[in-house]
Amino acid sequence: MNEVPASRPPSTPPLAPEQFRFWSLEKLRNADTDQFRHVNNAAIASFLESGRMELFAAPTIGRLMDGLNVVVGRLSIEFHTEVFYPGEVNIGSTVTHIGRSSFEVLQGVFRDGTCVASATASCVLLQAGKPYTVPDEIRRHLLGDPSSSAGT
C-alpha cells in the first residue's frame, strides 16, 4: 500500500520585535527542560501566558479589570526553532482585533532577537462566568490608542 505523506500547514513568516506593543521577560529554568536541556512546549505556553498578562499590567487597567476575568478559548502555537537552557526569553504581545467581548492576541517568543515561537490566542472577557463587553478604556489601551490614559 502506498502511503501519502501528510501535508504540513504553511509556516507563518518570522515575526519581528517591532510588531509588539507589550513585553515581558522570562528566565529559563532547569525545570522548563527535558533531559536534553531542551525547553519543553509546555514551558513555551506558560511564557506566552505570562506575556498575555502584561496586557493588563498597567495600574489603571488593573482597576478597570476588578471583577473581570480573561480566558483563552483558542491558542495556536508555532514552534520555529529549539530553545535550550540556560538563558532568558522576551515575550512580545499585541492585540490585533477586538470584538464585543473577545479579542485576538498575536505573540512572539524571542531569544537573542530571533523569534523562536509565535502564537495567536483568542481571548474572552468574562464577568461572573459570562461574556462581558470590553469597556472603551480597556479597548483603547489594548489597541494602543494614544488618547488612552492607561499607558503601557
Results as ranks from 00 to 15, higher is better:
105 V>W: 05
98 I>W: 09
42 A>E: 09
39 V>P: 06
64 L>R: 11
111 R>K: 14
52 R>A: 02
76 S>D: 15
45 A>I: 08
35 Q>E: 13
73 G>Q: 04
89 V>D: 03
26 E>T: 04
124 V>R: 05
60 T>W: 04
18 E>T: 10
133 T>V: 14
64 L>Q: 14
25 L>M: 06
73 G>R: 15
96 T>M: 03
114 T>L: 14
137 E>Q: 12
70 V>R: 11
111 R>W: 03
78 E>C: 05
116 V>H: 01
130 K>V: 13
42 A>T: 14
119 A>M: 09
27 K>P: 04
88 E>V: 05
82 E>K: 09
16 A>F: 09
68 L>M: 13
110 F>N: 08
60 T>S: 12
80 H>P: 00
49 E>T: 08
133 T>P: 11
140 R>N: 02
79 F>C: 06
41 N>I: 03
97 H>L: 10
127 Q>K: 15
54 E>V: 07
56 F>W: 09
44 I>C: 00
108 G>E: 03
35 Q>P: 00
20 F>V: 03
4 V>Y: 12
108 G>L: 07
128 A>Q: 14
102 S>W: 02
114 T>E: 14
122 S>D: 05
8 R>S: 12
104 E>M: 10
5 P>E: 10
99 G>S: 10
29 R>C: 08
71 V>P: 10
108 G>K: 01
118 S>A: 14
47 F>S: 03
93 S>E: 01
96 T>V: 10
109 V>R: 05
74 R>C: 02
140 R>M: 07
6 A>R: 13
27 K>S: 12
8 R>D: 05
60 T>A: 15
108 G>Q: 01
37 R>L: 14
84 F>V: 12
115 C>M: 07
55 L>Y: 00
106 L>C: 07
114 T>I: 13
92 G>F: 02
101 S>P: 06
42 A>R: 08
59 P>G: 03
31 A>N: 01
3 E>M: 13
67 G>R: 09
38 H>M: 08
11 S>K: 14
58 A>D: 04
105 V>E: 08
12 T>R: 15
103 F>L: 06
74 R>P: 03
74 R>M: 03
61 I>A: 03
74 R>G: 05
106 L>S: 11
